[in-house]
Design a protein around this nucleic acid. Structure first.
Lengths: 236, 236, 236, 236
DNA sequence: GATGAATGAGTATTCATTCAT
DNA sequence: AATGAATGAATACTCATTCAT
């Protein structure tokens, strides 16, 4: 009953403890990076002991994944709702891209960690992040399909590839920003450009007899010419 | 009179030794991965001591970078030559993409190392890899500019972004293959699709009806015909 | 059923573990020298793994410094007490020198390490060793000042320099012993000689003929007599 | 006979090569310190190759020792001549101390190397440095003996110890300067003070019946009183 | 005399994770 | 539930020196 200088064992509700671990980890991962943050650091910051963290998480990477999942889940929380309120294939595409860029811009460090530490993991595809991402990016597929349905987009649109070009393109373009090498990322402009590119690439042109189709025929002619050339080459 | 365990000091020409180190390192990095390969392993495999490697390279990462540079340099060696022989904006774009996919397909492990170990480094932009890459991908820019010049492409084509969408898209799409999670990568199909998407997205639609697509291909055809004519001239 | 090689995890109180590490390190440093003692050696000797040592010390040098601090602290533990019981400037000086020589004589190897490894360090002056030493050697200053106060010593005695000549002289003289090149160190004789030299060098000679030497000793004698008187008082 | 870009083998007279090695080594040792200077550095600086150095010196430490010997020899070159021109025991002592301080002040880094790297070596006493030093410091002995001869100094002067107190004191005092921690060293003042201390400590006082001798008697009285005190203590 | 490629030995340190208390 | 002491595994790098050419 005397005053004891020793650490007081503060027992907390599991959920609170869990949230606390995630909060502090999140903060420290962002501040110092994943690798530079030690479990001891995190524990000390919370005022607990390493072992305690391991009652809640199996490994350090689990902590990271949980942090990222929680954040990613929140980051993707209301886009569905917002997307629902947007009409027009192009607008909807634009929104998806714009939203994704905003996510990158808001938490570049966490995005980087997904790329660097989670997506490379052999078990990535068992991850909730993967699931979230799949669901998230599948919206692009849906939008394109909608576009095909209503004849805005041509029926042979390479959906998967377009999706990859969007997300890959965004990621590639934002790379310097995400890794902290640049501090400029013009979300609006990029979203405009990408959605425009996609829109133009998929636009249905069958209805007016002009344009591209003939295009293809020309390339066939070119191929033929090349064959001729080769034959001539052999002659000489 | 039995086998003598004493190491014989074998003196070799620096270039040969260097090549040897790069060869073995290359092999082992691909086989076991960068981190799992120890300098001691490499040295033993060559039949020298670790210290010798450090006469040629400052750090292990330097070895990796040299391996990658050498390979990447070779991988990009003749594409310029080949590209020169290809006419038509679309064909040229297609070739660039197709070539890049082939590079990825041929050495997925090395590509992965560039992404995982080199591109994340703070000094990446001082790397020869970076330079090679810049020169390499700038060809896409050039091709698009050519397309704009001859009115195939619209003048407001977002060049940089297209480049990012191409390379980002390729990388994103090939990700599972590069990381060894998939063993299928349909180079031709992807190249077709991406180049088609890009082509369509950039196509100049300003001209009335007949317009410039035809013009474009006509000029390519004309160019080809000129070449043919020249060859015929030589024959006679 | 034979001896099981598996290490049993023995948990110990931090203070005990710490002391154990210091004890063994002390022993091995003295026996083999600092550089020739590897952390692995120390750990094995204790029956723990290297990592455990690093829970208690940041670096190997930290271990050394701690060993030296602990020892030096003990070595200087009761000299203050003893010094207090000694009267007469000369006797007090003599004691300081004699004591220092004893410290050197008792642990020449550790003294050597202070000189070789600690005092050369750029951060020596942030060391507890430095502090201890400062406090320790400042006694010489005090004694000289006392001597000046009671007119035994001349008022222009170069205090700092005398201190340096004492400690430098001792160190220089004991050098061969400390470095193990000689095994003879006549503590009493050296202490006598040095204190005598200092005493003579500082003696106040300003007073005419009879003067202050006598005065000095007289005051010491008077002080002593007063003490005696007090004791006699207590007896009665 | 054609221009050859390969390194020209410049053959030099051995003495010149030797001097060159010593010059460059000297320079680099002073600039970067002994340990931080690699043989490769030195060789490159000269424009030769490591192996060549080893044709002139057996080990790196040999190079250091030669550098130091050469320098030390020069530094002590003319002091004998100058000393010869100085009369009076005190003046001569003062000169020795002053000269030594000047040596320290001129090349603190080299002095430090003698202390750190040469004097600790097991073979120090086989060194020319040791010899030089012995010859050098023996002058102090001689001067004191001269003083004794002409009755300036008392006949029981502790010669060796005085020498140690001089050199040890100087070294101790100059420590911070020599190790680069301080950039102030008041040569004249220190030389004055030390020589004065020594002079006073050794001064012959027998001729005038006053002073110190009685002094000693007093301490005998004190000792007696202490004995009395102890007896009284036992009584109580 | 010179070269310079090759040697070789040596070890401190980190930290996620475990498990006895 | 919490503690926190102990584990353990793993390796890049340096450079004085040698010796085959």
């Amino acid at each position: 009953m005397t005053t004891n200088a020793k650490k007081k064992r503060i027992r907390q509700k599991p959920e609170e403890r869990l949230a606390e671990i995630l909060d502090i980890s999140h903060k420290m991962f962002v501040e110092k990076g994943y690798e530079a943050t030690s479990m001891a650091d995190v524990a000390k910051q919370i005022g607990i002991v390493e072992g305690t963290i391991y009652r809640y998480f199996k490994t350090k990477k689990d902590v990271l994944i949980s942090v990222l999942e929680r954040w990613y889940n929140d980051a993707l929380a209301d886009y569905t709702h917002n997307l629902a309120g947007i009409t027009g294939v192009k607008n909807r595409l634009h929104f998806m891209i714009w939203h994704h860029l905003n996510v990158l811009k808001a938490e570049p460090a966490l995005c980087d960690m997904i790329v660097q530490h989670v997506r490379v993991g052999i078990d990535y595809e068992a991850t909730k992040i993967f699931e979230l991402n799949k669901a998230y990016s599948s919206n692009v597929d849906k939008i394109i399909k909608e576009g095909i349905q209503n004849n805005t987009f041509r029926s042979d649109a390479p959906i998967t590839l377009i999706r990859d070009m969007i997300y890959g393109g965004v990621e590639y373009h934002a790379w310097r920003y995400v890794t902290g090498r640049s501090n400029r990322l013009d979300v609006d402009s990029i979203a405009d450009q990408i959605s425009d590119v996609v829109y133009r690439a998929l636009l249905n042109t069958d209805n007016k007899g002009s344009g591209q189709p003939r295009q293809n025929d020309n390339s066939a002619i070119l191929a033929k010419l090349e064959q001729l050339e080769q034959k001539l080459d052999k002659l000489s």
